[in-house]
Nucleic acid binder design. Structure first.
Length: 595
RNA sequence: GGUCCAUUAGCUCAACUGGAUAGAGCAGCUGCCUUCUAAGCAGCAGGUUUCAGGUUCGAGUCCUGAAUGGAUCACCA
């Protein structure tokens, strides 16, 4: 493919050697700032030792030589130590034509690298909430970005289907449920099970309060409350596969899975394989035992197993409880190993998990390394910030969570409101309109959550956060719809979108900038893949859309008298639509053809 | 207390990994629908990049220290 930057660098290299008598070495260009004329800038400071002259003078000499020798350079100017190069219009036309012959431009061919990306990872005792939305959109998007970068990706989730928390829901259902099913209650299964988790907590708190009132210290009361002891007993029974407990567990989990499946479908995310902790925690236990045998871990008198990481600057960490049951870390060890057994070709795996678990993953990767797994070096914790509400942190027990299903429904309703207010639904069937509201509502939500650097926390204000103007999903979707309408018109008028023949076309600045942006698509994907950051794609697609809208307002398309200019503009429109559509798909966002 | 993360315009975020006069969106103010979709475009206004030092041609970016906010250091997950 023809890229201006690479060719320009080659030309600069030649010119530099010709003018200063020796090669420049490493050359990197940066886009010229908007205030200055030109497209690409060479910073002269690093080369002064070689040019043996002042920055301005060096820039002048080099610029002059380039203008004379390089077909790419139409003009130049030097400001302080910055050499700004103006690229010839013929080069932009060439780039446009070249991009136009590669429908997949920006995406890389398969590299043979395989990765696993984990996201979502819900507990089966709570419905999905706003935090899961950020997690899912982030993980799904990173998977898409890696694929576009040539990596084969396996999207997985680990379902936290065992542990004391599940027993809490089960116990509460046994005690207070009267055999209630989701069908009877008329609610989703995940919501039903979540309700019993809350019920457990209420009962637990009451019992603690009772014990404290009768004179027991709080700390002791928390351990001695009958209902928590029952839950612990239930976990032991579950690990022994007690038939009654096991059947109940399977039934309640199935309710939850059905509920999750519906939510994932609405969200537009999917997985290639599911892992269940109930199936991997035993392997974790074995590995811990092996570690004890090899002297990597140690057992205390009470039977609990620990790893000492003080030499690495961390703490001691529990790996198996005194009663022999496993903890979170045990399970994660087992799961990681299981995955590399299932997919021997994966190079590494990415865990999309909130930053509250930074420490946990640091420890996990260290332990895996100590156990002798070389791939531990390629495990990466994709850590992201919490989503806070104006009222503060979301707490499921206090009922301050924003439910994922509810929020998405609200988004659809808001999208409908906006669309109706703008009077833009004529010509749509009811079904089409409904689909549009979902596309727009979800697009707004996903874009809002993904445009921010993953590490940063997000403040989500339901009243104000979601907008449909400016740097938003719908703005970009709107730009796409506009272009589709242009392309439809072009087809009606019989404008061919094959190739601009006239390489001496006179372009407008917005056209040059637009093509320059389009040519950066591939770099942006690489960068986003390296940083695991959908925000880079979001920012980029916004810029592309913004530049296009400027173009759209400044220049006529079908009223353009010169047919070659007209063709350039139609092809440019087509390429922008392609970048928007494919870029947004990397964020998991669909774009409508009409809105 | 130890460790990790964050702090940029009133608000939400950028800044191409050390480059020029720190940019967008929202909110506010001015204009633009008789030409291809005004969910748009053009413009005005808005900054001591939390603070104090240091490194160098050059620092929002790197180093040291401090402040503020958050997370974590559980026989919770």
């Amino acid at each position: 493919m023809f890229t201006i930057v690479d060719n320009l660098i080659a030309d600069i290299d030649r010119a530099f050697t010709a003018v200063f008598g020796q090669p420049a070495g490493e050359i990197s260009l940066q886009p010229t700032r908007k205030e200055f004329p030109g497209h690409y800038t060479l910073v002269m400071f690093p080369y002064l030792r070689l040019t043996k002259s002042k920055p301005e003078e060096s820039g002048q000499l080099l610029g002059e030589k380039l203008q004379a020798d390089s077909t790419l350079v139409k003009g130049y100017n030097v400001v302080k130590g910055f050499l700004n190069l103006e690229v010839a219009d013929s080069a932009w036309v060439q780039v446009l034509n070249d991009l136009n012959t590669h429908p997949d431009f920006g995406f890389k061919p398969a590299s043979g690298v395989e990765m696993m990306v984990e996201f979502s990872s819900p507990n089966t005792n709570k419905p999905l909430h706003l935090g899961h939305l950020r997690n899912n959109f982030l993980g799904y998007s990173v998977a898409k970005i890696l694929e576009a970068n040539g990596t084969r990706v396996h999207k997985v989730q680990i379902i936290n289907d065992r542990g004391i928390h599940i027993c809490k829901s089960m116990l509460a259902w046994q005690k207070f449920g009267n055999g209630e099913t989701p069908e009877q209650a008329g609610i989703k299964g995940d919501k039903l099970v979540g309700n019993y988790y809350v019920k457990f907590d209420q009962e637990y708190k009451q019992q603690i309060a009772g014990l404290v009132a009768s004179g027991m210290p709080r700390e002791e009361a928390e351990k001695e409350a009958p209902i928590i002891k029952e839950a612990q007993a239930m976990l032991l029974k579950w690990e022994e596969k007690d038939p009654e407990i096991y059947t109940l567990w399977q039934q309640m989990n199935q309710w939850v899975y059905d509920g999750f499946a519906a939510t994932y479908q609405t969200m537009g995310v999917s997985f290639d394989k599911l892992y269940y902790e109930s199936e991997t925690y035993l392997l974790g236990k074995d590995e811990v035992q092996k570690g004890v045998d090899e002297g990597i871990f140690y057992r205390q008198e009470d039977g609990s197993v620990w790893v000492d990481l003080t030499a690495e600057g961390l703490d001691r960490k529990l790996l198996l409880r005194a009663d022999g049951t496993s903890v979170y870390m045990t399970q994660d060890i087992g799961t990681a190993i299981q995955r590399f057994r299932d997919f021997p070709k994966i190079h590494g795996q990415i865990y999309t998990v909130g930053n509250e678990q930074d420490y946990h993953f640091k420890v996990l990767f260290l332990i895996l390394k100590k156990l002798g797994y070389a791939w531990a070096a390629h495990c990466y914790h994709l850590s992201y910030g919490m989503v806070d509400l104006p009222s503060g942190k979301m707490k499921s027990r206090e009922g301050t969570v924003v439910d994922a299903d509810d929020l998405m429904q609200e988004m659809f309703a808001t999208a409908e409101e906006h669309t109706r207010a703008l009077g833009k639904i004529e010509g749509f069937t009811g079904e089409e309109a409904g689909r549009l509201y979902k596309t727009l509502g979800l697009g707004a939500l996903k874009y809002f959550l993904l445009r921010v650097d993953p590490r940063k926390r997000i403040l989500f204000d339901p009243q104000e956060s979601i907008q449909f103007q400016g740097n938003t999903g719908p703005f970009i979707q709107y730009t796409h719809a506009r272009i589709v309408s242009i392309l439809t018109r072009a087809e009606e008028l019989g404008v061919a979108v094959d190739k601009v023949q006239d390489t001496d076309l006179q372009l407008a600045e917005t056209e040059r900038e637009g093509v320059k942006l389009l040519a950066e698509f591939g770099h942006k994907i690489t960068e986003a893949a390296q940083e695991y950051s959908p925000a880079i794609i979001a920012q980029y697609v916004f810029e592309v859309a913004k530049e296009y809208n400027r173009f759209y307002a400044e220049l006529p398309i079908f009223n353009e008298p010169n047919p070659e200019n007209l063709k350039f503009r139609v092809i440019y429109s087509k390429l922008v639509a392609s970048v928007i559509k494919r870029g947004m798909s990397l964020l998991g966002i669909e774009v409508p053809d009409q809105m």
